[in-house]
Nucleic acid binder design. Structure first.
Lengths: 345, 345
DNA sequence: CTGAAAGCGCTAACAT
DNA sequence: ATGTTAGCGCTTTCAG
């Protein structure tokens, strides 16, 4: 908290130079600690900087070179998984000269593009995109201008790096668990976006496909039951209610994320049922799932690791790497009391 | 998603001017739609911009004037209350030319200063600070340079605006509720930072004081029981366990936030107790509190409104207002099944 | 209504 | 080792 003597933020490199009786270039060199400054000069300049409360303007710096700013675009911060990513990213950056800035993007309005563009307009040195909805082609184009790491999509492109969780493996983990418990009527609750394009790189789509595969391989192809709704998180409760009220009530419901799974749990309770009648599983491994009042079986994704990896890849790119890298992290099944053997009526 | 013909991001205002056969100044005017451009020229310029996929560099623009960027500093995004603020802030900004960027700050390391400074270095047009730990004096100094709105602290200063929830009223709401139910042994769980300086503007400190006041006014001054720990969110469970194991077990525990309250609930369950033996109340009104598996009595703060207000005040300041404004929003008690009349042994 | 030109604060050659 | 200088891309007087 160095005290600023002059009006904070007003001093320029010129002022510092004058105060120290040196040239602007000298000050610049001291700031960036570039080659060719005598200890004596460094001392004088440092003192002047301190005394004037001088801070280099990043915008001005950005005009010639880098801004030492990394941008990350994030949809719906309300999803507790994303803070994990950020924690990892921030941790990976601590000690480095880079600052992370987050641009929130409302996924409902195709805001991903807008937010990423806003970041690029602000001359960030690299972009991490978390939006599952921006098109790979667009990102490829973008990556010609600025290094890009896409988080959580399975499509690969040469222009940018990716960090994903192995969603297929994760989804199979839950399915094997439920099938192992003896469930046969397993329904899957997912977002609308997963449906139309099963080949897309969206995690939900991958998980949906894995669900279908697992069902078919267990000889339960005819019992596949998919409930899909726009904005699953908001509508999970209603969708689950419909599922539970129907003639052939499933004995287990697998949700594409933990948050919708919470809605499903609520629906189960509201329908006067318990985990003995209907098992529920989620996906993500958010903290609250471990709470005894919830106790949700889920697949934990190591969000912190993913965030850290994303930053590392980005820094490598900024450092000059050109061959694309694609990191896959392994999810892990966490069994809790929301999933039990099916009750035989 | 206007297709960029040239290499994205490479076109400058100069290129556009050349392509449209006009001067740079003309293009600039069109961009900012300033006074004095003929429809014909506007058309030509717009076409050129479109065709070249031109995007103005915000840094360059920032060198002369504004960056149309608002910065918000937020500690621990994992706290589900903060996304609400962001939602409100983002909503208030939609349609405006401003872009919101978030700088995450680890509260553990005095990062508030660093994050806010990073924002200012990047020439944001205004700053919203959520850190309860940055010193008012520092903010006052800062506000000489850039408009500042402080969110969630009760100290007032002339340099900057504030938006706070009425924490005293909120805390009294819970206390009155519990006392009304018949509780007499009510303990309060809070963070260490609330303790030392009861007169500070930190919300937890205000709530702590209100708790004490309410107890005393009910003639229960000698039963005041404060459990305070560093990093309450992480240590709530342990602290609650100690409280529950002690000789004089409280019949109710009030936590300074919902997240610690979740830990308390877990402790109650782990100790083999129920809401009939120990009532628990939180503060914030996070979504999960409404879940039947949790059902936590709490005080809801309208985070969305607070975020919106903060942005509005900031925009007013940017627009030239100089008299300080201090907005107070009223919290609201939400009673759920975690609080019940005390069990008489 | 349009254009020429002077910077904004900084970095990076290029001298010295 | 230090200083000079030419821009980076944009906005903004100020003339035409």
């Amino acid at each position: 908290m160095a005290a600023a003597r002059g009006r904070a933020g007003s001093a320029t490199i010129e002022d510092v130079a004058r105060a120290a009786g040196v040239s602007r270039a000298a000050v610049s060199k001291v700031i960036r600690d570039a080659y060719g400054v005598s200890p004596a000069m460094r001392e004088r300049v440092t003192a002047a900087i301190e005394q004037l409360g001088y801070r280099p303007r990043v915008s001005a710096r950005g005009m010639r070179g880098k801004t030492f700013t990394l941008g990350i675009e994030i949809p719906e911060l309300s999803n507790p998984f994303f803070p994990l990513l950020l924690a990892g990213a921030t941790a990976a950056l601590s000690g480095s000269p880079y600052q992370l800035v987050i641009a929130p993007a409302d996924p409902a309005h195709h805001e991903g593009y807008r937010a990423i563009q806003a970041l690029v307009d602000r001359q960030v040195d690299g972009v991490i995109a978390v939006s599952p909805l921006v098109e790979p082609a667009w990102l490829t184009e973008l990556s010609a201008t600025v290094p890009v790491v896409m988080l959580g999509r399975h499509d690969r492109a040469d222009g940018y790096d990716t960090v994903v969780s192995d969603d297929e493996a994760g989804a199979l983990l839950v399915m094997r668990h439920l099938l192992g418990l003896g469930h046969r009527d397993i329904a899957h609750l997912t977002g609308e976006s997963a449906e139309p394009d099963p080949g897309s790189g969206i995690p939900q789509a991958i998980r949906l496909r894995a669900y279908c595969t697992a069902m078919r391989e267990a000889g339960l192809g005819d019992r596949i039951r998919i409930a899909s709704t726009p904005d699953v998180t908001a509508n999970a409760h209603r969708a689950a209610m419909r599922l539970l009220a129907g003639a052939e009530r499933p004995t287990a419901i697998v949700a594409c994320h933990d948050e919708p799974a919470l809605g499903v749990l609520r629906a189960v309770a509201d329908a006067g049922l318990t985990a003995d009648e209907v098992s529920v599983a989620g996906y993500d491994g958010i903290d609250i799932a471990a709470h005894p009042g919830i106790s949700l079986t889920t697949v934990r994704q190591d969000g912190e690791r993913m965030g850290r990896l994303a930053v590392e890849l980005l820094l490598e790119r900024i450092d000059g790497r050109t061959e694309p890298r694609h990191e896959v992290v392994r999810p892990e099944l966490v069994v809790r009391s929301s999933t039990r053997p099916p009750h035989h009526r």
